[in-house]
Nucleic acid binder design. Structure first.
Length: 456
RNA sequence: GUGGUUGUAGCUCAGUUGGUUAGAGCGCCGGAUUGUGGUUCCGGAGGUCGCCGGUUCAAGCCCGGUCUACCACCCCA
């Protein structure tokens, strides 16, 4: 029996209109990646299960799509009871497979190794708007270099991508070492990750919300007061006096002798110094030192980045990243530092659609449609078709002999701007009537040379 | 993973306290118009009311389950 067809929860089909727009986004990002010297990499959709488990925290492990064992192996695992029923899993992000690849190929790669990767990832999450179980990530990472020039370059790269997409954004930059300094200052080193995760919610729930969350999680009232007081002293990042935050923090860290905090401030200061001295020319897409930016992933150890759209109603991040000092350590390669960013193409799509930023000419690649007047005329058009195609003009011949209005409707729906009308009259005269869609005209008769000149 | 909302034609939605052949607009197809569409007029097709079960003489409407989309947590792109 035929069942009603459907696709799995949280997945989508992309029709021609959507695909043209998606390719525009992917193409723009890829061009910039290449321009900055990053090289392409693809890894398999599936990895061995143990490559992925334990890399994303407890919550992350739950969201990994596992692939059931097959056949006798599955039966043995079921009977054993202690064995995993899965041997492989779909990739959860692009960073861990990249780390695995680097370790496996460490002797062949030229370090620092700069790679970009544009592929889908899968998460067994509960879907919501703008949140899917299959989505694309566009990553660029450089591994094997601790230089802050990499951070500077990635900030420039982010600005250039959003410049090219004509989307206004705000780039937030912070440094994990500053956050660790605060943790030390507030005497919560034993619960650093937990504390930072709660701090990260400030822009969403506000200072009072953060305080409440801390109390709920049994942080002492002194810690709550200290953090609230700290937030009270921070000048908003968009304020011109923002740099004063740097001095305020610097004094605090110096007085308490918090070395890691001072180190973080220095690193961040160096990045901003380079950006201010000509590394970037972006005006609309401003970079901010956001002292409250924390980001959830706990493998970040230095700079952290996050980009939010400055237009439209979607305020969650559309691009993010940071430095991780020891990502390959779990695969046996120690001391390999990397820094990378990831563009959320699906969310960028939603923002561009809402703010009407897709170029209008994305409609159809076909420029010219030959109307079909019957067998003899169609045969004649095949030759003309070859000529325009040789001239590099995308064109097609309507395959069936149907009434002209229907052929016009086809052209209109497909966004084809011109229709060539070649009936018996034109055929005998060696001419073509060229009609421009949308114009209220019958069209002009012309030679093929003239037509090609017009459309080139 | 926890709690909640939703589902009627291709699309957007009506559908009375449960009552006989489930409607509209837009779109689609055909004709007026056999070589000029997008306007107008006329006609037409298209629905197991998400799916499965239950209550009832009777269910699009009530109840249970399930799937989907969505919302809030959680987490994230």
């Amino acid at each position: 029996m035929a069942t009603k067809p459907s696709i799995p929860k949280g997945t989508r089909d992309f029709g021609p209109v959507e695909m043209l727009r998606r390719k525009y986004i992917f193409g723009t990002i890829e061009r910039v990646f290449q321009k900055y010297g990053y090289l392409p990499l693809e890894t398999p959709a599936m990895e061995n299960l143990d490559t992925l488990t334990g890399k994303y925290g407890e919550e992350g492990d739950r969201l990994i799509f596992k692939i059931l064992k097959r056949g006798a192996e599955l039966e043995r695992a079921v009977q054993d009871g202690s064995k995993s029923l899965a041997a492989e899993a779909l990739r959860y992000d692009l960073t861990v497979p990249f780390a695995r690849y680097v370790v496996q190929n460490q002797n062949e790669l030229a370090f620092p190794f700069k790679r970009y990767q544009i592929q889908p990832v899968w998460r067994a999450d509960r879907p919501q708007k703008g949140r899917y179980r299959e989505f694309y990530q566009c990553d660029a990472d450089v591994i094997g270099s601790t230089s802050l020039l990499n951070e500077v370059e990635l900030v420039c790269l982010m600005q250039e991508v959003f410049d090219a997409l004509a989307l206004k954004v705000k780039v937030h930059v912070n440094n994990r070492k500053i956050l660790l300094g605060l943790v030390e200052l507030f005497n919560v080193s034993d619960r650093a990750t937990e504390f930072i995760t709660i701090m990260d919610k400030r822009d969403k729930v506000g200072v009072e919300g953060v305080a409440e969350e801390l109390r709920k999680n049994n942080f002492s009232s002194k810690v709550v007061d200290d953090l609230t007081a700290f937030y009270g002293r921070i000048i908003p990042m968009e304020d011109e006096r923002g740099p004063q935050n740097h001095r305020m923090l610097s004094t605090m860290f110096e007085e308490a002798g918090v070395a890691v905090g001072l180190q973080g401030l220095k690193e961040l200061g160096d990045v901003f110094y380079a950006l201010a001295n000509g590394a970037t020319k972006a005006v609309d897409n401003r970079v901010f030192h956001d002292l409250t930016l924390a980001r959830g992933l706990d493998y970040y150890t230095g700079a952290i980045f996050e980009v939010k759209a400055a237009e439209g109603t979607l305020h969650s991040s559309i691009c993010g990243g940071g430095r991780y000092d020891d990502l390959t350590g779990v695969f046996g390669l120690k001391g390999m530092s990397g820094v990378g960013i990831s563009f959320g193409a699906d969310r960028i799509y939603d923002v561009l659609l809402e703010t009407n930023k897709f170029p209008t000419e994305l409609g159809s690649s076909t420029k010219l449609l030959f109307a079909n007047f019957g067998e003899k005329e169609a045969m004649h058009c095949l030759k003309l078709l070859r000529q325009v195609r040789e001239a590099g003009i995308a064109s097609e011949l309507y395959p069936d002999q149907v009434k002209l209005p229907k052929q016009f409707t086809y052209a209109e729906k497909k966004g084809i701007p011109y229709v060539a009308i070649v009936g018996e009259t034109e055929m005998n005269a060696g001419l073509v009537t060229l009609k421009k869609m949308g114009a209220n005209e019958k069209g002009d008769a012309m030679t093929m040379d003239e037509l090609i000149q017009r459309l080139k």
